[in-house]
């Protein structure tokens, strides 16, 4: 019994619990549904306020990077991505949903840029913006009701869906917020046993794993050797050159590889099989899409005439 009370106490003591509660309540109110006797406009207002407060509490978990501009841009890109996500799933109008999703994609691409992945940022914008524009055309062609359709104004069991997804969010938050870095536990061979027993309690950087090379565990050594190979590193240590090289105490410098060249080199050496599999997947999807959109007339067992069974198959609403 004490364990249960302790658990409840620790749950209530976590700030993130209130962020998740407020966010869940707000999203539930924002989802298209008949909320009893409450007027829709009042429900939307309350939902928006609750989501905003929940997001502000959630943002207290973020720790901006040390430099000023990356810190500003983390909030500039991070907050709109979450706001856009909420509005994507709660808009009555599918066209508005597609536009909000485009804003989510743009903010995510900005976060990619902050994590030094410019090629991926460009690729995401190109691929997803293309996909979203195609989806957008579909929406305009297929859904002419502009949010007046019954099925756009009634969510499917919104209470249970909100509960499920926000419990998942709470669990993820509780796991992520308690992450510890490997440095607090210590690296080195004599920590190996403890580190391998509690791998989920800490996060070692792979470049800090140098100490494990030569450890008695052969599997560990080979895994680590592949992880720290120079080909798969974003930046490699290089001794100082020029005048600084004369000084033996000069710090070595991190030399960054060019982004696209580095990705390509790593992709075609370390991940060659994945490239082949991705190509096969694209080919199969192409064949599948062509096969789905141009179906043959279905021949039912009861009749041998394709045209007749097609007439049975098509349903007039």
């Amino acid at each position: 019994m004490d364990v249960i009370f302790q658990f409840i106490g620790s749950v209530l003591g976590m700030t993130g619990t209130y962020a998740v509660l407020l966010g869940g309540l707000g999203t539930y109110l924002l989802l298209p549904h008949r909320h009893g006797a409450i007027r829709p406009r009042a429900a939307h207002g309350a939902g928006l306020i609750a989501v905003a407060v929940g997001l502000l509490i959630y943002m207290t978990y973020w720790r901006p990077p040390g430099l000023f501009l990356p810190a500003v841009f983390l909030y500039i890109f991070g907050a709109p991505s979450l706001i856009g996500a909420v509005l994507t799933i709660t808009s009555r109008d599918p066209v508005a949903s597609a536009l909000w999703f485009a804003s989510v994609v743009l903010s995510t691409a900005g976060l990619f840029l902050l994590a030094e992945a410019p090629f991926l940022a460009a690729g995401t914008i190109i691929v997803y913006a293309g996909a979203v524009i195609v989806t957008f055309l579909f929406v305009i062609m297929l859904a002419q009701m502009e949010g007046k359709a019954d099925y756009d104004r009634a969510a499917r069991s919104p209470g249970w869906a909100t509960l499920t997804s926000f419990i998942i969010l709470w669990c993820l938050l509780a796991t992520i917020a308690t992450l510890k870095t490997g440095e607090t536990i210590g690296t080195g061979i004599h920590h190996l046993a403890r580190n391998r027993m509690e791998p989920e309690k800490q996060l070692l950087r792979s470049r800090d794993l140098d100490a494990y090379i030569g450890s008695p565990d052969a599997t560990m050594t080979s895994v680590v050797r592949r992880a720290v190979s120079p080909m798969s590193q974003i930046a490699n240590l290089r001794p100082a050159e020029g005048e600084a090289a004369a000084n033996p105490d000069a710090p070595s410098v991190m030399v960054h590889r060019p982004n696209v060249a580095g990705i390509a080199a790593s992709m075609y050496t370390d991940h060659l099989a994945s490239v082949a599999i991705a190509g096969a997947l694209l080919f199969v999807a192409l064949v599948g899409a062509v096969a789905i959109t141009n179906p043959r007339m279905p021949v039912r067992p009861s009749s041998s005439d394709p045209a007749q069974s097609a007439a049975i198959g098509s349903i007039r609403p």
Partner: peptide
């Protein structure tokens, strides 16, 4: 941790 938190929230909202 910031990246993981934003990613987790996007994932949960997508599920919803």
């Amino acid at each position: 941790r910031d990246y993981l938190l934003i990613g987790a929230a996007l994932f949960a909202l997508g599920i919803l």
